[in-house]
Nucleic acid binder design. Structure first.
Lengths: 255, 255
DNA sequence: ATGTCTTTGTGAACGCGTGCACAAAGATGG
DNA sequence: CCATCTTTGTGCACGCGTTCACAAAGACAT
């Protein structure tokens, strides 16, 4: 995840904790898989295992949405898919623009996970005139001069920034000025935005650095253990969800 | 950011909280920028602003590493860069393999943020025989038949999975069997790994879904406010780091 | 209808992370 | 050498998130 946060004020959205909101997409994916296999109902235990979380946590998460389960039976898969989709706002169409069509921007444009969740790539924007008109993922790239017009014409409220670091803040400012209120930032920069605009950050380098930290620690422990005459650790197989080198921490965050 | 977690057991690595570890790369980036401008020292207040965090939090984070500041002056930039780099394990070389050279894999191979932090792309691996030998980012793609040999020959301990969802778990199993102990997963799947292996997950679709949730909420509030006769909200500019629609939550997590 | 069994929904306790506010430490000037 | 000023390092309190453990609720069989 991106990185570095502060607990949000008292504005808890409609009583649903942020931690829960972040898990809903995870549940939704697991439920969608069950739905495709025509599984009618699922218990909290089963679904929790599929999503890689604690079953009590899952039940508490669902309790924030309402009482959608049946005691002694479990949850109705289709009904839950609908409720979560509605809660996340996925029942409506979200036009999205991607700014910065380099390798990453092109990869995002081609990413299939967007369309399947109600997200529609409305436009691809790049500052390089040579890119203009060139189709990427079947969509012609438009020049950034037209950014404002594109945003307004398509009613875009979500923007994805995949530009180099230096261009990110100016692009962000223009997106916000044009009406975008949610930004997913892949550029390695801290963006400054007005109140009311949400920013989530994904930083690939930071993720690797966190892994490196734990990798180094493991190497150190192993060496220490070897020095003690004891062998390396490593035990039984476990679901990665309930251990993790990092417990919680976001490499993707609001910022 | 990837998603869904559980607090790690009591194994707090060398006393450094996970939340702190996740912020160290952020500080490092800000410090590197200062270093390039030849700024000799920086106060916690200034650095915190650059990294988008609370200054007290920053000081407490640094206190876990030791007392590297000078009261009345601040922190020595170069020294702090070195200490954080060492703490994160970036002073050593980390060979990394990327498995799955589609759009995303290619984008990762070309990503400049890796090399600059001690990460070296040792090999690109893909299951498609047609890709074999074809250079991506100047590195010839190798066939997945040779995965185990590549891992061992290069002493790789960190693997990046950018395959389709279906291939992720088998690839993960082979990586782990070959000796990889840290995995960065871009495939939309919950990976199961043995104890001792760290997994971090980055899910682009989940990030957008979280944004959509808040976007929907904002739209609802605005409508409600309009119905009350009051105008939309939106106030002054603020640094996004200390508000956020999501406070904390990780879309990237251990799982 | 009644009893048993399964599974949900949640009260309560605990722990981590955050941020305030201040004392201690050092620099700097007279 | 002393006074003042800046900035660190941290004790403390607060709140969120997680987890346990159990009572309530419904299904199902008899």
């Amino acid at each position: 995840m991106a990185t570095g946060r502060t607990h949000r004020p008292a504005t808890r959205s409609r009583g649903i904790p942020e931690a829960t909101v972040a898990r809903l997409p995870l549940y939704l994916r697991a439920l969608t898989a069950l739905s495709e296999r025509s599984v009618p109902t699922v218990s909290s235990e089963e679904l929790a295992a599929a999503a890689g979380v604690n079953s009590a946590k899952l039940r508490k998460d669902f309790s924030y949405l309402g009482s959608y389960g049946t005691r002694g039976v479990g949850y109705d898969v289709e009904y839950l898919v609908y409720q979560i989709s509605r809660e996340l706002g996925l029942t409506q169409d979200w036009p999205v623009v991607i700014v910065g069509i380099g390798n990453l921007g092109a990869a995002l444009a081609n990413y299939g996970g967007f369309a399947s969740r109600g997200f529609r790539v409305a436009a691809l924007i790049d500052a390089d005139p040579a890119m203009a008109g060139k189709p990427v993922a079947g969509i012609p790239v438009q020049h950034s001069d037209d950014l404002e017009k594109i945003i307004e014409d398509n009613g875009v409220s979500i923007g994805v920034i995949a530009t180099p670091a230096g261009a990110a803040q100016p692009v962000c400012d223009r997106l916000v000025a044009a009406g975008v209120t949610s930004i997913l930032n892949f550029a390695p920069t801290v963006l400054s935005v007005p109140d009311g605009v949400d920013v989530r950050k994904v930083d690939l380098s930071i993720e690797l650095q966190i892994l490196a930290f734990h990798e180094q620690r493991k190497a150190g422990e192993e060496a220490a253990a070897a020095a003690d005459g004891a062998g390396p650790v490593v035990a039984g197989r476990s679901d990665s969800a309930d251990k993790g080198p990092d417990g919680d921490v976001p490499a993707v965050m609001p910022a």
